[in-house]
Design a protein around this nucleic acid. Structure first.
Lengths: 347, 347
DNA sequence: TTGAAAGCGTTACCAT
DNA sequence: ATGGTAACGCTTTCAA
């Protein structure tokens, strides 16, 4: 049996609330004599009293814990630096304010229908942007603050969003590729990300940018092991001379695929990734990629969440949701070059 | 005001406990008619009822959350793969059993004196092996299961430990270096890890192994930016021809330091790291290192913890603590070589 | 098959 | 300056 506040109170010959005041000192209105306070602390220590945080949280409606729901439970590894970057930002913001970080894949289960607020968390950072209409509803009804990462503005009513400027980013990609002389360009999405909110945003931005240059882009969805590479690019009559991808990690997979299939990058095919981390320096060839400041975004999103929580606690009225858009530059490396030869001109 | 179980009960015209049974169905002994059950579920959904997990956990004494206390709050990055590896193992074990992972630097605060069990966690994985006598006491008194990583057996009475076989590992390091012809070898610990439980273990193992070869090893503690390199290794009259380090990350720092100072590795100095991850492939030169299976250890330690939790829940008697020792091979790469020239023979 | 009441451990309010 | 009482939201006896 664990010792409770009451045990301490009994042992010290005072009431439970006196002990509570002394040990957790919320009270301004309640004063305890120094003498008694010392006695209580001594007794608590002798009895090895451990306050039950669950009970405290239940009363205080405060857990000092933030839940992070991530898109996909991937392993942390060099091939996919996105998740570590995200966590770095979140941890930096959380830990300096003594919050606990909870990783809960269970919440990400969409069968939950966005049932997100169950008292365990003071706030939620939602990094899983593929949702259904149902989960969108659930999210916007949440009784605890929710902040969305990688979500275009106004997709989820009432919630603040932190998102890349996909329009400008894709425009830069297209500009770069077209500037190199490419005319047949595809935007390739890995199956895993097909349902992501940003997949739509980037696809549309890509098509629009291509169209502005008087060209027609193509959207492809490929299997997670880039089977599409095999299907479409064996032989010399390749449908595109350049492809942009939804993620850095997927671009990496494609590069390896190209090696397998004897496709020369960038001579035969130019490849552009999304998210430009140190990983891009390690690929063969080094990967040209859109530079999304994931860590910064995560840090600022978390900070924003903490502010919302604070406002919530202080009973302030709900602030209006904000949309933060992050400009993303294009880091040009070695995986893009002019098309080697015009196999067939577009007339 | 959030809707509670009672609101649902009132709306459905039944009692609170009936609702509880229907929605969380613990009861074998209590039966509710299908009709009423459906009605209750319908009402709950209409009212957007969200069970409060805090209250449930308080009653059930179960949070389905495991706290991970780590040694040092470092950023996740390529230069220090230890933490990602650890998390991979922990997550794999936890998430497949639907547990939530909590990262709580607050608990790591030693001022806590090992006050570790506050109801929020069903169990704790302690990856912060530098502790005081006081915290050791606190840990072994914990009312929830605690499993120790990186802790030599029998250091904390009553707790299961998962630890590298430091003795064999250091012996292998010494054997390799001595085999190459080195006679003046140091084991270098970064300040940050000076208090780690394994620092002592590895130091002693190193000295013993050296002694077995009839040589006297030296233990050095260096500043985290390897200032020791500057102090001791500028000029040609270097005290050692080879150094082994406490960690892979620190070895990386030393390698960069050597570049700054014009020390050739491995010609002037051989360097051996601890923990052999992909990082060792990226250093210049590639780093010879002890191969500690961090992810595997973390996975198995977490699994063990979950078993302890399960036993705890089922009211089984406390199992005897176990000590798991992991054999660590030496991955020989390019940072070790025979000493270039004997500057001064040892008589 | 169902309900009432008592608690889990803590804290807030209102007395004294 | 201190104590009694109620409540946070849920579940578990026990009784009907």
């Amino acid at each position: 049996m664990r010792t409770t506040l009451r045990d301490v109170a009994a042992a010290a010959g005072v009431s439970a609330m006196t002990v509570s005041k002394v040990l957790h000192g919320t009270g301004t209105n309640v004063r305890v004599s120094q003498e008694k306070a010392d006695q209580i602390r001594k007794t608590a220590s002798e009895l090895q009293y451990q306050p039950n945080d669950l009970a405290r949280s239940l009363r205080n409606k405060r857990t000092m814990t933030v839940g992070v729901v991530f898109r996909q439970l991937t392993r942390l590894n060099q091939q996919n630096p996105y998740f570590p970057q995200l966590l770095n930002g979140v941890m930096a913001a959380l830990f300096e304010q003594n919050y606990t970080l909870a990783l809960c894949p269970k919440l990400a289960d969409l069968s939950n229908n966005g049932a997100v607020s169950d008292g365990r968390f003071d706030g939620i950072l939602w990094c899983r942007p593929d949702f259904t209409d149902e989960s969108i509803q659930g999210l916007s009804r949440s009784s605890v603050p929710v902040v969305m990462m990688h979500t275009p503005a106004d997709l989820v009513p009432g919630l603040s969003t932190f998102c890349a400027d996909n329009e400008t980013a894709m425009r830069r990609v297209v500009q770069h590729l077209v500037g190199l002389g490419h005319e047949r360009v595809a935007f390739v999405i890995d199956e895993q990300n097909e349902a992501a909110a940003e997949a739509k945003a980037r696809s549309e931005a890509f098509l629009a940018a291509m169209s502005d240059f008087g060209m027609q882009g193509e959207i492809c969805v490929w299997n997670d092991d880039a089977t599409g590479c095999v299907e479409a690019y064996v032989g010399t009559d390749r449908p595109h001379t350049a492809i942009a991808t939804f993620s850095e990690a997927f671009a990496g997979i494609i590069l390896r695929r190209c090696v397998d299939l004897g496709i020369q990058v960038p001579a035969d095919l130019s490849v552009v990734g999304f998210d430009s981390s140190t990983f891009c320096e390690t690929t063969q060839p080094r990967l040209t990629a859109v530079n999304q400041p994931v860590e910064k975004m995560a840090y600022e999103a978390t900070l924003h969440l903490l502010n919302l929580i604070q406002a919530n606690v202080e009973g302030l009225p709900k602030a209006l949701p904000s949309s933060s858009i992050y400009d993303c530059g294009l880091d040009i490396r070695s995986s893009t070059a002019p098309p080697a030869l015009i196999v067939e001109s577009v007339s």
